[in-house]
Every structure is written in structure tokens, then in C-alpha cells.
């Protein structure tokens, strides 16, 4: 395997990690706000608080890791994406900043402001929307090179149905992933009311999810035939993803194997995410930048890979520890334990 491919796989894995953990977080915020609106807050807020509190900061690091890594392995992305993404990414940063810090303010400082809960819920949908625009731009057709600098055509971007399909897909994914995870998490916490409610949300969002995914593939045919052909050529991976999706929904429907359904869900997204990534190969930004043109030098690449492996040796045990203590710890999850917060 070439270093270019190795680099992009590493980054893609981390982006996938971010998509999963951030979706759970974003969706949880939305469901919390929604249940406040419909007067069912007592069912959900406890369980959501319990899950989010110790891990929120970790979520953020996945994203930081991805963008630092991509500039490290592919410095030219800083030039292309850095120039065109000023506005959408700045908006995402501002939303992330407000959301993240006010989460800390609320949960460690003072509790219980309703307006805050709504802002938190809405930002959870706006952030994935603004970040998903990056993927849309990468498909080509929205960036022109003027005087040697890339320029984003905002009008074309915001009038393209593809943009909005991808935004809707990102929202549907966030809500679906989060609902499936929380169904299981609440069930584990023996909070059957919350679990049942989340199960309903999960089933509700499964339809729109598949609808949007199909819509995007169809739109790609018109938007970028070249990329469309690539996507079709790896249809078996999308197929596996679809089967995993059906199995998850079936398990949820039958209320069986909720833990397994979370596993299948992650696999479903893993397949779809990598199928999409592979179909994108070799372009980082269609048609201007490929992973080969954008790649850093050999020495830096090797140094980064070594740092990455050393870093993983440090991180994996630590991640295992935090998940064992909080996410998979029965005593903690069910709230039977004393509160050990500082």
C-alpha cells in the first residue's frame, strides 16, 4: 500500500469515528430539546446527561485530529479547502464553540435553562449541515480557479439540489444513529420508557435516511457522471450496507438484540462511508486535487505514520478505560452509583 493511501485511510477512519460519536451527541441534543417541547423531558434528559457528560470533549478531538491530520498528510488541502471553506467552516466553528462551551457551562456550572436546551438542540442539526457542505464541494462543480486561487461559487452551491440532499442526509443520519444508540443505552440503564421512545424515533428516521441516500446516488448521475460511475462500480459495498441497515431495523422492530443492532448500525455506516470514500478515490477535490498531487514529502509522511502508531498505543488503552468506566459500566449507566463528580 502506498503512503498516500495509508494516510487517507487513517484520516478516513478518524472522520468515521467523528461521524459516529458526534452524531450520537448532536442527535441526543436534538431529542432532548424535542422532548422538552412535547413535554416528555423527564424521560430522556437523565439518560442523555449521563452519556454525554464525561465524553463530550473526546468527541471534539476526533474532528481536530482529522483536520490537523489532513493538512499534515496533504498540505495542499490547506490551500484549496482553506481558501474556499472560510465561510462554511467558520460558521461551523462558531456553532461548535457555543455548543461545546455552553454544554460545559450548563452541566458543570448551573443547570436548567430552557432556551439553552433549544439552542443546543438546533445547533446539533446546524453543525452537521454546515460540515456536510464540505463533502458536497469535494464533488466538484462549485469551485473555479481564478488567477491561480480557488473561488467558491456560492450561488451554484446553494441552488444545487445535491447540496440540500446531502444536508438532509446528514441530518437524517445524525438522528438515526443517535436514536439507535440511545435505544440501547437507555435499555442498558433499565430505563424502558426512554428506550421505547428512542426506538420509535429510530424507526421514524430509518425511512428518510434511505430515501436521502438513494436520492443522492441518483443526483450524482447528473451532477458528476464520472463520480457516479465510480459509485456504481462498488455497488456490493453499498449493498452490504443496505442489508445491514435492514437487519438493524428488523431487530429494532422486534425489540431484540439491541446491543447487536448498535453493532450492525456502526458496520452499516462503516461500509457506506468507505464505499463513498473509495468511489471518491483518488480525488480530494474533484477535479483539481488528488491524494497523489496533494501528498506531503516522504520524510514527513513516515514521521507522521510513526507518530500516529505511537499515539494509538497511548490512546487505545485510555479510550478503553474511559468507555469501561462510563459508557459500559453498568453501575454508572444505571445511576446506582454515588455521584463522584468533583
Amino acid at each position: 500500500m502506498s503512503l498516500e493511501v495509508l494516510g487517507i485511510i487513517v484520516l478516513w477512519i478518524f472522520l468515521f469515528g467523528y461521524v459516529i460519536v458526534a452524531s450520537i451527541d448532536f442527535g441526543a441534543g436534538f431529542f432532548n430539546a424535542y422532548s422538552l417541547l412535547t413535554g416528555r423531558s423527564h424521560i430522556l434528559s437523565n439518560i442523555i446527561q449521563r452519556y454525554l457528560s464525561p465524553v463530550w470533549e473526546v468527541t471534539n478531538v476526533f474532528l481536530v485530529f482529522f483536520f490537523v491530520g489532513i493538512v499534515g498528510f496533504f498540505p495542499k488541502t490547506a490551500f484549496y479547502y482553506g481558501t474556499v471553506l472560510l465561510v462554511p467552516v467558520s460558521i461551523a466553528i462558531i456553532l461548535l464553540a457555543i455548543r461545546g462551551s455552553y454544554y460545559a457551562f450548563e452541566s458543570y456550572g448551573s443547570r436548567g435553562h430552557k432556551g439553552y436546551a433549544f439552542a443546543y438542540g438546533v445547533s446539533g442539526l446546524l453543525i452537521p449541515s454546515s460540515l456536510s457542505v464540505v463533502l458536497t464541494i469535494s464533488e466538484g462543480g462549485f469551485v473555479e480557479i481564478v488567477d491561480g486561487s480557488p473561488v467558491l461559487d456560492y450561488w451554484a452551491l446553494f441552488t444545487s439540489p445535491l447540496t440540500w440532499s446531502i444536508v438532509l442526509l446528514s441530518i437524517a443520519s445524525v438522528l438515526y444513529i443517535s436514536a439507535v444508540f440511545l435505544t440501547w443505552y437507555a435499555w442498558k440503564a433499565q430505563d424502558l420508557n426512554a428506550s421505547e421512545l428512542m426506538r420509535k424515533y429510530a424507526l421514524t428516521w430509518s425511512g428518510p435516511l434511505m430515501l436521502m441516500a438513494a436520492a443522492i446516488i441518483i443526483q450524482m448521475q447528473e451532477h458528476n457522471p464520472d463520480r457516479f460511475r465510480n459509485m456504481i462500480s462498488i455497488w456490493p459495498m453499498f449493498g452490504v450496507s443496505a442489508i445491514l441497515f435492514l437487519l438493524t431495523v428488523w431487530l429494532l422492530w422486534k425489540k431484540r438484540g439491541l446491543g447487536l443492532s448498535v453493532g450492525l448500525l456502526i458496520l452499516q455506516f462503516l461500509f457506506a462511508f468507505f464505499a463513498y470514500g473509495i468511489s471518491h478515490y483518488p480525488y480530494l477535490l474533484y477535479p483539481y486535487l488528488t491524494i497523489y498531487e496533494g501528498f506531503t514529502n516522504q520524510e514527513m509522511a513516515i514521521a507522521l505514520v510513526i507518530a500516529f502508531i505511537a499515539g494509538l498505543c497511548l490512546l487505545i488503552p485510555s479510550l478503553y478505560l474511559i468507555f469501561r468506566l462510563f459508557v459500559f459500566n453498568k453501575e454508572y449507566v444505571t445511576g446506582n452509583q454515588k455521584d463522584f463528580h468533583a
Binding site: 457528560s53 464525561p54 465524553v55 470533549e57 473526546v58 471534539n60 478531538v61 485530529f65 499515539g311 497511548l314 490512546l315 485510555s318 479510550l319 478505560l321 474511559i322 468506566l325 462510563f326 463522584f340 463528580h341 468533583a342
Partner: peptide
């Protein structure tokens, strides 16, 4: 990353 993980653990294990 390392710092964030252990801060979370430290905070919740008084």
C-alpha cells in the same frame, strides 16, 4: 486527546 480523556475520568471519580 490523552489529556481530555483523563480529565473526564479524573473529574468523575472523586
Amino acid at each position: 486527546f490523552f489529556e481530555a480523556i483523563f480529565l473526564g475520568i479524573y473529574l468523575y471519580t472523586w
